[in-house]
Every structure is written in C-alpha cells, then in structure tokens.
C-alpha cells in the first residue's frame, strides 16, 4: 500500500544519509556535497520557520553545515536517525540565535495558522510514516491550547515568555503545562 511504499522510501533514504554522514566523517568532500543537496532544503525550512528571515537563516545554515562537517564522526546511528540528528543541529542553532537576538525576529500573527495546518506532508523523510502518525496522535490527545504550545515551541521557536504572553498565562503556568504535555507525549509514545 501507499504507506508501505513511503516506509520503504524512508528506510532507503535513512541508509543513504547514514552512509553520507559516515563518509563525511572521513573528510569525503564529495559526500558532503551530496549530503547537503539531500538534506539542506529540509533543514533550511526548519530554520526559516523559526527565524523568518532569509539572510539570518543563511547564516545559521552556514554554521550548521560547518558543524556537521566537523561533528560527523560523533553521529551514532544507535541513538538517533541521521536526519533527526542533522535537523537537531540546525534547529538548535536557530533557537540559540533567536534567544541571543530576540528583537531581530518579527512576530507575525499567522503563526497560529501555520501550526494549525500541520498535517504530515507526504514527501518527507524525517521519520517514517507510522512514527509521525503516532506522534501526531499523541499530541492531538492534549488539550487544544497545549497542542498549540508544543507546536509553536518546537516548530516556531517560541520561548516560555512568548507563550505566556500569547496564551495570557503566568510563565510558571506555561512551564507546568509544558511539562505535563511532554510527560503525556512520552507516556503515549511508549509501546
């Protein structure tokens, strides 16, 4: 079926990306170029979603791939999938930047709409189809506000302060809600 084919495609690309990272760890520049072509469009989208500014995102992407070049030998396939590992470097780079220069990002009102429309995209290879479905199912079990909080934090880089302001709650309440939501997600994902 359709999802089987997606799953197969995902597994193939996971093996390919793992292989590219292994080669990059051996300073293979050609593999680095291929790794970039294969993964940068997704990582750029991730960074851009958080920073909302192309040239700022370019800078973070630059630092991300320089880091990937140097840290490729630290990738451990037993601990995470390759694309998850790569995306984490990009995402945290973007969040670090945003925390350092919060004023540089213009908050826009349509971010809520962005996350509301968060149906899984068919083309993607961050995680296999079943995993994505399972996570979305678990998030959807949360109360509506907490679903939005989790997605706004993770996808758009919102801080506790921004969440508190938007949801009109004290920061400590936001923290408590987030902790409950994360625990609930973890429990829900357990086999």
């Amino acid at each position: 079926m359709h999802s089987d084919r997606q799953q197969t495609a995902h597994l193939q690309s996971t093996a390919e990306v793992t292989d590219m990272i292994r080669r990059v760890a051996q300073q293979d520049r050609e593999a680095f170029g291929r790794l970039y072509e294969a993964t940068a469009p997704k990582l750029m989208a991730t960074v851009l979603r958080i920073l909302k500014d192309r040239s700022w995102a370019d800078d973070v992407m630059h630092d991300t791939y320089v880091k990937i070049w140097h840290k490729a030998d630290q990738f451990d396939a037993k601990l995470s999938s390759p694309i998850t590992w790569l995306a984490a470097i990009a995402r945290h780079g973007a969040i670090d930047e945003l925390r350092r220069h919060p004023a540089r990002r213009e908050s826009s009102g349509d971010e809520i709409d962005d996350i509301a429309d968060s149906a899984p995209a068919a083309h993607d290879q961050i995680a296999d189809h079943q995993t994505v479905k399972h996570l979305n199912h678990c998030i959807d079990q949360l109360e509506k506000d907490r679903q939005d909080m989790v997605r706004l934090a993770y996808l758009n880089g919102w801080s506790r302060d921004q969440l508190a302001l938007h949801f009109d709650q004290p920061i400590n309440t936001v923290k408590t809600w987030l902790h409950r939501a994360l625990k609930q997600i973890k429990r829900c994902l357990e086999p």
Partner: peptide, 13 residues
C-alpha cells in the same frame, strides 16, 4: 529528539 522529530514532517522543504 527522536520522540519529537516527527513534528518536522509538517515543514515543507
């Protein structure tokens, strides 16, 4: 990271 990474599927390259 592995638990939450599925959310990134919503992001189009």
């Amino acid at each position: 990271e592995t638990r939450l990474a599925g959310m990134l599927d919503a992001i189009e390259p």
